[in-house]
Amino acid sequence: MNGNMNIEKDKNLLESIPELKKMPYSVPEGYFESAMDRAKEIPGKSASRVWQKLYPLASMAAMFAIIATIGTLILNRWEFFSEPSEQMQMEDYLVHSGYDFTVSDYQSENSQLADAEISSEDIVQYLIYTGLSIEDMGE
């Protein structure tokens, strides 16, 4: 009860001077209009603000992609110029020749080689080429 009376007294004092409720400040002329105009620009600016926040991440991702691409290209080039192993050469040959290299083909090829005759002329040519004499052959 006593508390309520105090509240009433305070209210009376504060209500008895009407100008107390007014804000005793002036603002620059046209301030509220310009403040509104600036505030209305916020949605547009906030989009660019989002981009500003994302920009470092985006540039890092782009940089990473560039490095990865360049790295891949360099590695591919290095493999291209480097000498392939003998086995890889053979594999490449077999793959790219389109030849069906089966066991039966190999056997038939070898049997043809076995059946071929060596003429005496071939032997003479071989001896001339290697520099061996007939005496050397006899030994």
């Binding site: 603002v27 509220f32 403040a35 949605p43």
Partner: peptide, 30 residues
């Protein structure tokens, strides 16, 4: 705008500070 300006003005005793804070408030609202 006007209501918030006066609301803030009672706590901040400087027009320039209120002006800055008012814009911050609208950024937060958006």
């Amino acid at each position: 705008t006007e209501r918030l300006y006066w609301h803030i003005r009672r706590f901040l005793c400087n027009h320039e500070d209120v002006n800055d804070l008012l814009q911050d408030v609208f950024i937060k609202i958006w």
